[in-house]
Design a protein around this nucleic acid. Sequence first.
RNA 1: GUGCCUGUAGCUCAACGGCAGAGCGCCUCACUGUGGAUGAGGAGGUUAAGGGUUCGAAACCCUUCAGGCACCCCA
Length: 423
Amino acid sequence: MAEIVRSVKGTRDFYPDQMAVRRWIFDTIRDVSTRFGYQEYDGPCLEFIDLYAAKSGDELVKEQAFVFSSPGDDLLTLRPELTPTLARMVAQRQYELPLPLRWWSIGPFWRYENPQRGRTREFFQWNIDLVGTETAVADAEIVAIAATFFKACGLAPDQVKIEVNNRRLMDSALTTLGIDKPVRSGVFRVVDKLDKLSEKDWRAFAVETGLEETQIDGLLLLLNNNALWKDSQELVEFFELITVLGLEDYVAYNPKVIRGLDYYTGTVFEAFELGGQSRAILGGGRYDNLVADVGGNRLPGVGFAMGDVVIELVLMDAGVIPEMVGCKTQVMVTVFDESSMMASMQATREIREAGYSVVVYPDSDKLGKQFKYADKLDIPVVVILGPDEIANKQVAVKNLRTREQVTINRGALLTQLDKSLTH
RNA sequence: GUGCCUGUAGCUCAACGGCAGAGCGCCUCACUGUGGAUGAGGAGGUUAAGGGUUCGAAACCCUUCAGGCACCCCA
């Protein structure tokens, strides 16, 4: 075999079958976003590294971003996430944009990680944000969008759950425990680890982070208190709203959800697959200072991001992706020999102008080969225009599914196609 | 960045240290005007690359490269 230049590690090729799945997911995203009244937008794939240096968390920028210098010696990065771009776009037109704004986007992102199941270096991400309002209504709407998306995909509440918490609530609870600001972000990491380590290891990790034994006990109690949300007026209102929206089956309180990114300030949430691998599907929350962080005035926002890789795995495992989602050709016109090529092309044109998806076989191969081709491409109807048909001003139409073939007057071709295709 | 596993035909995989194989797919024919089946034939390999051990290596050892999985982190 001739040597084929390999593809870049962590990238994916989308052959038509896979592209059809992606298309279906993207279409569902677009449909849900639009039904909630969100407008589509996008930013550049290339940004200055400085945009992310402002926030995002060190890990993401220093270790996971594709950074390189341009021929003009600018330090550029392939965007690892969209929220900073959004913050910039909003800050740039802060006084022109009618607030609150509802925006959504889907596009490619890059992170330099070790690829494995559910994770690639190049992936697509759905971002959706509601900027310019601080109410629980906004938080509830964003979570409702996520839940509605799952519903639209055919995922039931026993297959996927959105777990919600609130950073302000956790902040005050931690303050009560005497855990102060300096170790706060370290504590969030400790919280994040709870389900991943054994209790002994977890305690050791907590001590290492700077927590006292009594604080660790208190923290443990806190993290197992599933009624903690009742202490937060924001969350009480939030859950009321989710119930009014009829999506309470998809949403639950979980004090362990805290999120890694530094810029979240209020409500935070993550969606998980239930059972199976318990994979994290999407995550988001409220970020009230982000626009200010890139140089604008303070503007509160809430939103989430969902990668395409994990959701596709979840949808595959759940078996909810419809069959035959690709664009399927409906009709193929055969070419008997060179002398009949024009007649076949003419028929193809008529069929296409009538609105069907139609191809003409581009060679005068043996009919058997042409039929085999139509069969492989799953084209249901084949049109035959051989010397006999042409001489008699007729045309033959065969339905490959039912194996029925009829020879009719040439003028009745479109009517016959309509019949054949409804079978 | 760390650890474990794996690289053999287009794909999925066999082959005790002893001739490089099968299934599927592909091409041709049976079938000179008709597809999913069947039968007969055919093409396709530097066993990821390089080095070493051995009379002999796809197999054992080393290095590199690539892929998968887990950690880390996150979508």
